[in-house]
Computed example of a mutant assay.
Amino acid sequence: MSDTSLKATAAASGASATERFLTDKIGTSAPTDTARVDILATEIITALHDVIRRHQVTYQEYDALKSWLISVGQDGEWPLFLDVWVEHVVEEVAHSTREGSKGTIEGPYYVPAAPELPSVATLPMRAGEPGTPLCFTGQVTDVSGEPLPAAVLEMWQADDEGLYSQFAPGVPEWNLRGSVTTDDEGRFAVTTVQPAPYQIPTDGSCGRLIAAAGWHAWRPAHLHLKVSAPGHESLTTQLYFRGGEHIGDDVASAVKAELVLEPKPTADGGTEAGYDFALAPSA
């Protein structure tokens, strides 16, 4: 990835993710349960107290923490921080008993209302879109294997430089984003390009934490999907690529063995990969 692209993405993505969250998610949460807030807040604060005592945290470290927490808000990076280091555990707990295909984190870069596409489609992309062509195929069924016609797959992904449309300057609005409707047998075939691994933004507060802790900032290449059908639970997931960089050390800890694709080369120099989704019935 070019230095210019990386810096531009890092500078813009925190504010964009915060704005998107405030637009799409505020007001959708369940009503506040005072007893629930009491127990969660008390245990979180108590756990922090235990860390301070166990590691003999100094005032210098405490002040550094206060400064960093303030800067996370100023940089607009709370969605990024929570989605990278916290969401995978929330997802694990929320869906621990769900039947069907495995899910994983949504991340901060989802945008609703992507262009609607038929079952055989090409994601919107620039003329001469860089990257290796990818044909992604599969079928959506219920947990018994019955096809789900007219299921919807919302797809979004980074491009060949690891950049997401609507979060990176200079990338067309709906680039590599689409909402695909399956055919009468629940099947789909989507032409796109293989995404690249990418660093989460590192020029803000999250980057300072990564540098201070000696961590890396990389996510493996992946496709994002939300799969839905009437009468069934929607599935949010990511699909990765066997042999890809950072499959084993994803900064967001979101990779699951069940979500790794086996891409195969095609005669035209591209790749193809298949994946079937099984949706659980609605409660």
Rank of each mutant, 00 (worst) to 15 (best):
S2C: 10
K7F: 11
A8Y: 00
T9C: 08
T18D: 13
E19S: 14
R20G: 06
R20E: 06
L22Y: 11
T23R: 15
I26H: 09
S29T: 11
A30K: 13
P31F: 10
A41S: 15
A41F: 14
H49E: 15
D50G: 14
R54E: 15
H55A: 11
H55R: 15
Q60V: 13
Y62G: 10
D63C: 09
D63E: 14
K66H: 14
S67I: 08
I70N: 14
I70T: 15
S71D: 15
S71G: 10
Q74G: 06
P79I: 04
F81G: 06
V89N: 07
V93W: 12
A94T: 10
H95I: 02
T97D: 13
S101I: 01
S101M: 05
S101Y: 01
G103V: 03
Y109R: 09
P112M: 08
A113S: 13
P115D: 05
E116N: 09
E116F: 08
S119Q: 05
L123A: 01
M125F: 00
M125T: 04
A127D: 15
G128I: 03
E129K: 08
E129P: 06
T137E: 11
Q139A: 01
D142W: 05
D142A: 07
V143F: 05
S144T: 14
P147H: 05
L148W: 00
A150I: 01
A150N: 13
V152R: 10
W156Q: 04
D159M: 03
L163Q: 12
L163C: 09
V171N: 04
E173M: 12
W174Y: 13
S179D: 02
V180F: 04
V180Y: 02
V180D: 01
D184R: 11
E185H: 10
E185P: 00
R187N: 03
R187K: 11
A189S: 15
A196H: 06
T202F: 07
G207Y: 04
L209C: 06
L209H: 09
A213D: 08
G214P: 04
W218Y: 12
A221Q: 02
A221W: 01
H222I: 00
P230L: 05
T237K: 04
G244W: 03
E245N: 10
H246R: 10
I247H: 02
D249V: 08
S253R: 12
S253F: 09
V255L: 05
A257L: 09
E258H: 10
V260H: 04
E262R: 11
P263W: 02
K264G: 04
T271I: 12
D276I: 04
F277I: 08
A280P: 06
P281N: 07
P281I: 02
S282Q: 12
